[in-house]
Amino acid sequence: MSTAQPTPRTKLDDSSIIVKADRVNKYFGRLHVLQDINMEVHKNEVVVILGPSGSGKSTFLRCINHIEKINSGHIYVNGHMIGYLERNGRLIEDNDRNIARQRAEIGMVFQRFNLFPHLTALENVIEAPVLVRRTPDEQARAEGMRLLERVGLADKHDKFPNQLSGGQQQRVAIARALAMKPSLMLFDEPTSALDPEMIGEVLDVMKELAHEMTMVVVSHEMGFARAAAHRLIFMDAGRIVEEGTPDTFFDHPREDRTRLFLSQILH
């Protein structure tokens, strides 16, 4: 299986590469969910991953911050291999503390929001900065309020998640991820669990973020992909089938599989 592959390194030299996946494979039991995935995300680039359900796109996203393990290959984030150490050519899972340190630089927004229900909106936002970054409480609160303001929810700072709508919860979740000042944001189908009338408010926040952040977004929102993405990646059955800029991707897809998918999703 191994061709002339350069020896894998634990560090990358090119600092403009935020994410690099190198021949990533993953199995769920006998199911080969990720097959030799190679991709790079550059600084300030917005990449949208599309694909039918079961194509492995969410799984791949979750591998980027090592919430899912991989079976082979390498994923580098911010120049360092994530989740694993290399000893004598073998990958060994890194310790909890080191993985946590790397994850602190990667924001993630989940399909089901995953806000902490026992904490208010503001407490959700400041929990990690205070606990992980040891930001002084007052400073964290001030910054947290600024972030809530940015997502248009400053007035809801003392509300608990179950007192907020889905769209509001997701905006708090985005603020919570931003509070760690990450160098990369991952969005895992951030609007799939929302009622249609709430999708817009979340996408507006994301579009604004897209101007200044490195983002990898798994989404079915074609409007967002066209407007905000620099590059689209189409995955099917655990492989990257096609990638390109929004214009070439939507208007001149090369692969039949991509055409079929687009025709189904755009009707």
């Binding site: 946590a100 990667i106 993630m108 989940f110 806000l115 902490f116 929990e127 919570r176 991820a177």
Partner: peptide, 23 residues
């Protein structure tokens, strides 16, 4: 508790112990 809670806590850079204790 929804496993998503632990995932969210970890994604924010919390260690297992932090996530257990606080979340």
């Amino acid at each position: 508790i929804d496993p998503g809670q632990m995932e969210a806590a970890k994604s924010l850079g919390m260690t297992f112990a932090m996530a257990m204790r606080r979340i």
